[in-house]
């Protein structure tokens, strides 16, 4: 008998259903089958109504973050074998469910936009060529620029659960990405943006964001850096009022 695996999938249509439910599927198992591969098999061959997002299937686009067997992961990077052929899937947490595994990411992107996620240089660009950035300065951007904005961290964060306006790990790490960039000069502007009521001071440093990050990024580290910078910024302002 051919090997099979089991999928238990969260189903809900926010517009039509009273309550969500879990639906069970049996999927043929072949070596190397990922959770995303299983979901696609279900959608294309068993149940054309199952809604979820996907694109690259290679762990780089950030579309398919979901809750799989107890933790947030990318479905495309998760081997069904590692789930012991028994897969339970739920949508990303702390974001409104639209249908099945599709959530409304609007709030996540709003927080991302809030921190001004673009380079704001202090000096006009060089007359010719590039801004000079030493390899050491460039190295400070390593890892943190790998963020694919998949929102695994947002789902795992306990503070976002309690405070929907909390900027969340991804947006705060993104703010730090620009703070540490030697070409960026908007440090004070960004510190103001991240040190409000829903900013860096809200984080409880539980580290669940870091634990689930598929790119090994350390948002609590970024948040700690931002807190230190924010304190220095406040002290400077007190010492030298405008």
């Amino acid at each position: 008998m051919a090997a099979t695996c089991r999928f238990s999938i969260f189903r809900h249509d926010a517009a039509a259903d009273e309550a969500p439910r879990f639906q069970q599927y049996e999927v043929p198992y072949t070596e190397g089958l990922t959770v995303l591969g299983g979901l696609i098999h279900i959608q294309q061959r068993l149940d054309g109504s199952l809604a979820f997002r996907y694109s690259c299937r290679a762990g780089v686009c950030g579309s398919c973050a979901m809750h799989i067997n107890g933790r947030y992961r990318l479905a495309c990077e998760t081997q069904v074998a590692d789930c012991k052929l028994d897969v339970a899937v739920r949508p990303l947490g702390h974001l409104p469910i639209v249908r099945d595994l599709v959530v409304d990411m609007g709030r996540f992107w709003k927080h991302y936009q809030h921190i001004k996620p673009y380079l704001i240089p202090g000096t006009p660009p060089p007359a010719a060529g590039e801004y000079v950035q030493t390899p050491d300065d460039r190295a400070r951007l390593d890892v943190i620029i790998d963020c694919i904005l998949c929102a695994s961290c947002y789902g795992a964060c306990t503070t976002t659960a309690a405070d929907p306006e909390f900027l969340g790990p991804a947006a705060l790490a993104k703010a730090n990405r620009f703070l540490v960039d030697s070409r960026d000069a908007a440090t004070e502007e960004r510190l103001e943006l991240v040190s409000g009521d829903h900013g860096v001071w809200r984080c409880h440093q539980i580290f669940s964001c870091q634990q689930v990050c598929p790119k090994s990024i350390n948002p609590p580290g970024s948040i700690a850096d931002l807190r230190r910078a924010a304190i220095r910024h406040r002290l400077r302002r007190r010492a030298h009022p405008e």
Binding site: E130, V132, L141
Partner: peptide, 19 residues
């Protein structure tokens, strides 16, 4: 390419800080 760099694209660098 220079435009992307000025917009913040984090290209890897040579020892003298160029792309």
């Amino acid at each position: 390419i220079y435009e992307l760099e000025r917009w913040g694209c984090p290209f890897s660098r040579t020892v003298d800080g160029k792309i």
